[in-house]
């Protein structure tokens, strides 16, 4: 299952945090900063998986996994879009490559909701972020991967706020999350 879904920007500022277990705020923040340290030091062209951050590695998986231990979070998957990092922490029952796709689906659905999404949209509409995530993942289990359904599910909950007018695009964030440049896994 999925243990946490995180979004933060290139400075490590969280934009969305969703933990599917109850965790102290301070520990959440430590975990985020540990993952950010890992993710921001990745060389070019490395894979989309991170080694376990110390906080998780310490208490969990010892290498000698003689018996299957599928409850333990063992996989940290991330994707990088323009100024943002999307992180999924999951156990071994999830497929690593499918998780990469899952992040893509999430970003695409945001793109659909906001029309050419950029970091500013996420900053000002974090309720919509939660709503979109809630249409895809409930309690750590993926319930929907279809773009249309996710988008319509969010729209059914009310109108998605538009970007504030006076907060222009030119705020140095570039346009959009630049999804076009990213390769797409053909997992769907």
């Amino acid at each position: 299952m999925i243990n946490a879904f995180l979004v933060f920007n290139g400075q490590g500022q969280p934009r969305l945090t969703k933990f599917y277990t109850q965790l102290d705020t301070s520990i959440q923040q430590r975990l985020i900063s540990e993952i950010f340290t890992l993710v921001s030091n990745r060389p070019q062209g490395s894979c989309n998986f991170l080694p376990l951050p110390p906080l998780l590695a310490a208490s969990g998986t010892s290498q000698s996994a003689s018996e299957p231990h599928n409850d333990v979070p063992s996989l940290v998957t991330y994707r990088h879009y323009a100024t943002l990092y999307f992180i999924i922490i999951s156990t071994s029952t999830e497929s690593p490559l499918a998780l990469i796709d899952l992040i893509q689906v999430y970003v695409e659905s945001l793109d659909r909701l906001f029309e050419n999404v950029c970091e500013l949209d996420l900053i000002f509409n974090f309720e919509t972020l939660h709503a979109a995530l809630g249409e895809m993942i409930v309690g750590g289990v993926v319930i929907e991967t279809n773009l249309e359904r996710i988008v319509s599910g969010v729209r059914a909950q009310g109108t998605v706020a538009k970007r504030p007018v006076n907060e222009g695009r030119g705020a140095g964030l570039g346009s959009g999350l630049g999804m076009g440049g990213n390769f797409v896994w053909h997992g769907r």
Partner: peptide, 13 residues
């Protein structure tokens, strides 16, 4: 390692 195993992981359900 064994001791570690006994301890539950942070995010574990």
């Amino acid at each position: 390692a064994r001791v570690k195993k006994l301890k539950q992981s942070l995010l574990q359900v």
